[in-house]
């Protein structure tokens, strides 16, 4: 419409980079929703807050390690964030969900909403309600393609986000298919009683699933802190909604589904904003969700026989 002249290919490439970066972050958060749903069949609405806590730990970490060389600081912050956030994930399950596991279906859902509000308020009181800005730490990037004066750029940070996401996806796939913990997870997902009879520690397996989800959210939190540089106690809400949408779009319970769903939402947003209008990008993303769910009610990868964890 109002898109005129300029380059076509380079511009498309640039929006692709924008969308994939955004989608990777959504995907990392969506994995937490999907893993928990796969194993205990509940939506952990406090997961967005777990991601927010990861981002806050990152802000605190970058302040703590201000004097340390960047690469080392980044590594330390990642370790700190995953440890602290993983602990929050474990506590969340232990305090709010495990006591309710045998209860009626809505109980854990309400507990999740309660924990989400609790964590938001807790961070607001403990850390203050102001935004926590983090100035750009990693600058610069590569030029992918120059066409008619338009240079498609990918920043080092974007490359970092993509690589880390790919690495985590590979690690997660290996964990589920190649380790005994993954086997236990799959067993619990199929039949918790039978798994327990065969000697699988069901409680521990569920706990560890929450911790894994929290760790992925923590990495997303660190990346977002670095990339966008603005964190406050409320960021978990919007990110949580988008990531949850991504998980449903991909087929909730499916690991590749969460990643593909996240990427799709990110790409739809970027391309809609890039070619049509920024105003309507959320409407576009959610319309596509509705359309997909009409034709595939269980999401893109959500086939009943598909392996869910």
């Amino acid at each position: 419409m109002s898109y005129r002249e300029g380059s076509v290919v380079a511009y498309f490439l640039q929006q692709l980079v924008n969308g994939v970066t955004l989608g990777s972050v959504y995907g990392l958060i969506a994995l937490g929703y999907t893993m928990v749903y796969g194993i205990i069949g509940m939506i952990n609405f406090a997961h967005g807050e777990i991601y927010m806590i990861g981002a806050f730990v990152a802000v605190i970490g970058f302040t703590l390690f201000a004097g340390v060389p960047l690469v080392l600081a980044l590594l330390l912050v990642l370790i700190l964030a995953t440890l602290v956030t993983g602990f929050y994930g474990w506590t969340l399950e232990r305090v709010a969900y495990r006591p309710l596991r045998g209860s009626f279906r809505l109980a854990p859902l309400i507990a999740a909403i309660g924990m989400s509000i609790f964590l938001q308020n807790y961070v607001q009181l403990a850390q203050g309600a102001r935004i926590k800005p983090v100035p750009p730490k990693i600058e610069g990037g590569l030029t992918l393609l120059v066409q008619e004066g338009f240079a498609a750029r990918v920043s080092y940070l974007q490359i970092c986000i993509l690589l880390l996401t790919l690495l985590l996806m590979a690690a997660l796939t290996w964990m589920i298919h190649g380790t005994s913990f993954g086997r236990q997870q799959r067993a619990c997902e199929q039949d918790k009683v039978m798994a327990a009879l065969l000697g699988v520690n069901v409680d521990r397996t569920i706990s560890m699933t929450f911790v894994t989800g929290a760790i992925l959210a923590a990495v997303a939190g660190v990346l977002v802190t670095l990339y966008y540089g603005v964190v406050d106690f409320f960021i978990g809400f919007l990110a949580g909604v988008k990531a949850f949408t991504a998980a449903v779009l991909g087929g909730i319970g499916s690991i590749p589904g969460a990643m593909v769903g996240g990427l799709l939402i990110g790409l739809i947003e970027a391309f809609w904003a890039g070619y049509f209008s920024t105003e309507w990008k959320d409407v576009a993303a959610f319309s596509i969700l509705v359309i997909v769910l009409i034709f595939r009610p269980s999401g893109i990868f959500g086939r009943p026989e598909v392996e869910k964890v």
């Binding site: 898109y3 966008y228 904003a273 890039g274 920024t278």
Partner: peptide, 9 residues
């Protein structure tokens, strides 16, 4: 937080 698509445009 993400306005990169608008910026590219």
């Amino acid at each position: 937080v993400d306005y990169s698509a608008l910026v590219s445009r």
